[in-house]
């Protein structure tokens, strides 16, 4: 078998092994790469940065563990910025597995904030977690009228009316923006029903797979910012000044992408060599 044919017929397990080793080694080697900040990420940061203490935003956490790698760092960075700026956060989950993700993110963000500043953020005062309800479209429309329609109680069963933070928050008119971190089609619902029906400013953090689908909405101004995949998460970690798992992941991404490019080139050389051979034999 010629070299070109060997290249084309390479066992996919060698590709996995090469990628695994590349990721493993580059995780252990200390080096960093620059994280250029995109306009769409900076817009979100600037928006939150210009809010006053006591303003409220709605953080919609609509992802499950399968997309945690890309989206959890975004949620943690947004929560960090909000907590530091004393911005109230209304948290919801419109995906069945979302409540566990939201609860975990809030626990981590509260603990980290306490460790950094010594200040304990309180549920019901600094943030509210309303929990999960099915049928995103109807829930989004319901919250537009009043948060209490779909969520008479919060995630922990406490009546929403008894939460101090919610006294002045009735519906989307009382939050400055909706920040949707999502690995599901919930983002479509937020665009059509949240922004489309109620004109509430909307920004999104989505997985890499989803990101390109939502750039048209950024171009039309229906959303004022996008965090796309791990890169978006790394950008936001950089903006809030806490490089974490996403920033660490981006250097590994670079190495992994180089490996993939090499394999694409090898595959293409093999393909064209085989095609040439077929043409010659015909």
């Amino acid at each position: 078998m010629k070299l070109a044919e060997k290249m084309f017929a390479i066992d996919r397990r060698w590709v996995y092994l090469a990628l695994g080793l590349a990721v493993l080694i580059s995780l252990k080697i200390p080096f960093s790469i620059p994280i250029p900040i995109s306009k769409e990420a900076r817009n979100i940061y600037n928006f939150i940065d210009t809010l006053k203490a006591g303003d409220a935003v709605h953080l919609a956490i609509d992802y499950d563990p399968s997309t945690l790698a890309e989206l959890h760092p975004m949620t943690l960075s947004i929560l960090k910025q909000c907590f530091e700026k004393k911005i109230k956060v209304v948290v919801t989950a419109l995906h069945q597995n979302g409540p566990a993700m939201a609860a975990a993110a809030l626990d981590t963000a509260v603990a980290r904030h306490a460790a950094r500043s010594g200040e304990q953020m309180k549920n019901g005062v600094d943030y509210v977690f309303l929990g999960y309800k099915p049928y995103p479209a109807l829930i989004i429309l319901g919250m537009g009228q009043n948060y209490r329609i779909p969520f008479p109680t919060d995630y922990y069963g406490v009546p929403v009316d008894s939460l101090p933070m919610m006294k002045h928050i009735q519906n989307y008119d009382d939050v400055k923006a909706i920040l949707n971190v999502s690995g599901t089609s919930a983002t479509d619902y937020w665009i059509s029903y949240g922004n489309g029906r109620y004109k509430v400013p909307l920004a999104i953090g989505v997985t890499g797979v989803m990101a390109t689908d939502y750039y048209p909405y950024w171009q039309t101004g229906q959303i004022f910012g996008i965090l796309g995949g791990l890169k978006g998460a790394a950008e936001y970690e950089t903006l809030v000044g806490t490089p974490g798992k996403a920033v660490q992941g981006m250097k590994v991404q670079m190495v992994a992408h180089l490996i993939i490019i090499v394999f694409i080139i090898i595959g293409n050389i093999g393909y064209f060599a085989q095609r040439k051979k077929r043409e010659q034999s015909v």
């Binding site: 990721v23 890309e70 890499g208 797979v209 590994v252 991404q253």
Partner: peptide, 26 residues
């Protein structure tokens, strides 16, 4: 060009999952 951008983002997404799992294991 659109499909290429989507493919690039998809590769990044899949590698992100691998990275997160290896970060967890290590």
């Amino acid at each position: 060009v659109g499909f290429g951008a989507s493919f690039g983002f998809t590769v990044m997404a899949r590698i992100s999952l691998l990275i997160e799992r290896l970060q967890f294991l290590l």
